[in-house]
Design a protein around this nucleic acid. Sequence first.
DNA 1: TTAGGGTTAG
Length: 632
Amino acid sequence: MTRITKRFRTLNRSLHLQSQRETSNSWNSQMRELAKHGHYRQSLHLYRRLLRSGGSPTAFTFPFALKSCAALSLPAAGAQLHAHAVRAGCEPDPFVQTALIAMYCRCGSVENARKVFDESPQSKTLTVCYNALIAGYVYNSQMENGIVLFLRMRELDVWVNAVTVLGLVPGFTDPVHLGFGRCVHGFTVRCGLEMDFSVGNCLLTMYVRCGSIELARNLFDGMPMKELITWNAMISGYAQNGLATHVLELYREMESSGISPDPVTLVGVLSSCANLGARKVGLKVEQQVECSGLGFNPFLKNALINMHARCGNLARARAIFDDMTEKNLVSWTAIVGGYGVHGQGEIAVGLFDEMTKSGIQPDGTVFVSILSACSHAGLTDKGLDYFALMERDYGLKPGPEHYACMVDLLGRAGRLAEAQGLIESMPVETDGSVWGALLGACKIHRNVELAELAFDRVIKLEPMNTGYYVLMSNIYTEAENSEGVLRVRMMMRERKLIKDIGCSYIEYKGRNHLFMAGDRSHPQTEEIYRILNELEGLVKELSGYKKNYQERRNEELVSGIGVHSEKLAIAFGLLNTGLGMEILVIKNLRICGDCHLFIKLVSKIVDRQFIVRDATRFHHFEGGACSCNDYW
DNA sequence: TTAGGGTTAG
């Protein structure tokens, strides 16, 4: 062979190799782009095309293909890729190993992931491999294994980075995890990882999930720089813990610090508007949603349905719901629950049936909504039917929350013995809510004997919940059993329990004005009390109220609680908005019988509709014909 | 390998 021929062949081979390299580079970059943008099927399709065209996958090819298998949960395809990687000699590559571990974990086969990890001596020194396996354990709810591996990493002095923490910490989701979560937090502080935005946000969410909102807030306050996700984590944390006023305060703070909200922020804010009945803020958010072109976000649409329903505008909630092209389970739950709190059980039932007919599988949450809708509307038998088909037709095991709804349903209908029987036959562990529901029913039907039994059980389960003591004390008061009242109050004193301070909010000009019982801190206090005295004078004139009113008033004076907070809120509303108003009062306690009557009579006097909300439901008070859709 | 979302009774 001549030198020229030899050189030509060498050149040709090198050109061939170069072109193959260029080709696989091009395949790889295309696959990466597709996988990066979530087009996993197309990415895998490209991999198959690469093989068909006779190309050879490289160590750069496998991570993208494996990631696609993981995202699509295709264990068989993933295992096939594993075999290809071994054949191509790419398995020892750290990126391939990491991708293999992640793929097996995402496909639910942690054992295979562990095998990949154990069989490679180098993986035991590589942070990325530990990270993938720790995140995989957490993903598969094997927290203990995740923690053990993390500790092993520390023991072997393997470098721990932010991703290690981000893989492990989301697994701390329960108060029992708080101790270890705090240790990991301490570790991040010591090695300076806390300053990483992602780590800080992740720890913040961990505290929220473990039920320690105060620690979350401490961390939040200590962060020198807060990005949108940080604000969102804190806002959502408050929203999920029912601290709606904190959400609105923080949202205001966020806006004034110049950060623009995104859909995640607005969802949290809308959910809090719903809880508070803060209609004005809710409407402002709705405008923002429309202006910013976020109106198509399904999360936001569901949050808007909920907000409108809870803030009294069921028609608007329904319009948004009807307008949705793709209604998911949460959309149905929101609208069913909306009709439920408005006492329109028949419509709620119709919607629920429509939902199941459309092929959507109900879950435990939507059953809570429909059972409570039946309960509030007096559809007792219908509720019993739904409860029965929950497990029979949908394989959903009723939890204590469903039993609490059923006890409430039977209890309101006066079927107290059946309610008690249901609790005693519960196959799941009971909690305070179930006996609490029975206690509530005993109050409606004035059954002191059964109330004593329910009270005895409920305080064993929730000894620190003041609401139940107050409820029992009120039952004794109504039964004119002063010994009983004294006994309950003594119990509260012995246990150092202080009754939550009742407070009412009223939304005026987009802000919530808060009043507590006997409150005199509001700048308009003098005028508020003047209006209140006038109103009290007027309601006293109405027959049947005078004697009762005076007795109650004396009781208030003796107990030293002063004027109830709802009255102050109503007086504030009338003072500032005159008669053409719609009032939203939100309480964290039940409206007592006296205030209920007071509001009802005031609505008659001023001939206007009031919408009053307590912690759990709406009450409509209309002037003229009173249409209270309530039960006491 | 990696941080933040909607619906729930009493």
